[in-house]
Design a protein around this nucleic acid. Structure first.
Lengths: 117, 117
DNA sequence: CCTTTACATCGACGATCATCGATCAAAGGA
DNA sequence: TCCTTTGATCGATGATCGTCGATGTAAAGG
């Protein structure tokens, strides 16, 4: 079993929207992550994986989402390279699962401005 | 001063990604909101407004974001109709501000699965 | 070695998006 | 009443995106 940590999420991705001085680069990074969430099929894939105890192979995801297999791979790649999913290879099969750490961290993006002194 | 509540956000928008059974429609709704966040300029607009004590007029936003005025209006419309911004008109000026309620609620989208029994 | 299965990549397509100049509507002043 | 200013909308553009059939690749089984 070869487990592959996703390559993308720039360390601790995405400063809060209310961060005092967000650089242009920060904005690009943040937008990139949300772009991965900006498609109904990808949202459904996340929902599917979030409700699966174990990792799920591409063929099962393809069935559940009702897309052609290349299209499913396309979406999985976007989600993975945004850091939202993890991929493990087992023989001919590829298993995908939620990257809970990254997804959980995204909550902080919407955290309100730190207490004003 | 005419204050206009944004028309879009379907009540309490966006169920958690880990919701047990997300409908296809839920996925579309969720994706629509994140699509509004999926552009660097729009992220910067949110960041700008999140750090402004008061609402900001289009001309000031245009200056700070460094886009042509029609492009700024285009982005503001996307953010507003996603429910992320509020718009107030004052004479010839239009003032935009963060819809804190909606933005804050978005944190719940990334909340982890409810305790497993 | 050949076949099958699972998945990724390629190439092409139509659709949507971001951008901006030009134009329009509305609100104040002079 | 005219001119100026603000901001929204229109129309055109180039770029990106989602989709899928065809093809490629790698593993497993006969």
């Amino acid at each position: 079993m070869v487990s592959v940590k996703s390559p993308a999420p720039p360390a601790a991705c995405c400063s809060p929207l209310a961060a005092p001085a967000m650089s242009e680069g920060d904005a690009v990074t943040t937008a990139r992550v949300f772009k991965a969430l900006a498609d109904p099929h990808r949202v459904r894939i996340l929902n599917l994986l979030a409700n699966s105890r174990d990792a799920v192979c591409v063929c099962d995801i393809t069935d559940r989402i009702d897309l052609a297999q290349p299209t499913t791979s396309f979406h999985l790649k976007k989600l993975t390279s945004a850091g939202l999913l993890e991929r493990q290879q087992q023989g001919t099969w590829a298993y995908y699962s939620i990257n809970h750490e990254v997804l959980n961290h995204l909550r902080s993006v919407f955290e309100v401005k730190e207490a004003r002194r």
